[in-house]
Amino acid sequence: MTSTPFDSFSHEWRKRRAANLRQGSLGGLLLLVALAFSLYVGQFDLWRLITGLPRITEFLGGMVPELHWATLDSDLAEWFWGLEKWLALLWTTLMMALFGTAAGTALGSALSFLAARNLGAAPLTVFLVRRVMEIARSVPDLVWALLFLFAFGLGPLPGVLAIGLHTLGAQGKLFAEVNENIDMAPLEGIRASGGTWLDEIRLGVLPQVLPNFTSYSLWRFELNVRTATVMGFVGAGGIGMELYQAISLNYFSDAGAILILVFLTVALIDMFSEWARLKLAGISSDHA
């Protein structure tokens, strides 16, 4: 028996397959352990879900009251009896998201130039700014809201500040990464012709990063609209408070009406944001 190329291939193949199998079964074992642990800690209980199903259907059924075709007008009016109040609260919710996103993005983008390693900020500055942004985004926005509630009292103000602060941290990190990926040649040109650091940022960096900044900001706005809808759960303004009360006090049809309004608002904002993103992308590719 002489060793053919096929023999050595089959030997090698068997060896690799055995190694893969070993690694795979080790990974599978670890996954199973993690799964068992999580099922236990998470009190996962399918039986509870099954026994809870009637209550879910009762809840869902109660959310839509009986509507008759003949009296659709008055039925709908009765269902959405608080429409004026709810729309006003939704408007506040949107404005919270808008201002929080705008303020957080403005501050975050300013800080992002100090957090980028390639734009000449001192290493200590880069380090400190990065840590501040890390804290701002690691603390969940609702936790910031609870903290601000202590200082500023009930109402939309703590909610806006929480959204703004979280946005600052999240945008600052993303923007700093965008800044670090730019072409440095324009900056050298500006420096060579006697421009200051601010000139470098304004004329050298900003034109390169603006399309990315804008699209991230629109995306963040979508996320913040969702967040703003639940800020009221802790008393920090917007539609959330009404929704929380309607659900916890079993006002099913109110909960249904508000959920529909929230759902439509979020969908509308998502559509607008997608449209704006596509339009902006189109414009920037025209110029390129």
Binding site: Q43, L49, R55, F59, T229, L259, V262, F263, A267, D270
Partner: peptide, 25 residues
């Protein structure tokens, strides 16, 4: 699937708490 994402985690969590009770489940 888009519509599932429109409501925040916390809203769904509140609904499920009402339906199956308090707790991580």
């Amino acid at each position: 699937s888009d519509s599932l994402r429109s409501l925040d985690y916390l809203i769904w969590a509140l609904i499920f708490v009402r339906a199956i009770g308090l707790g991580p489940f």
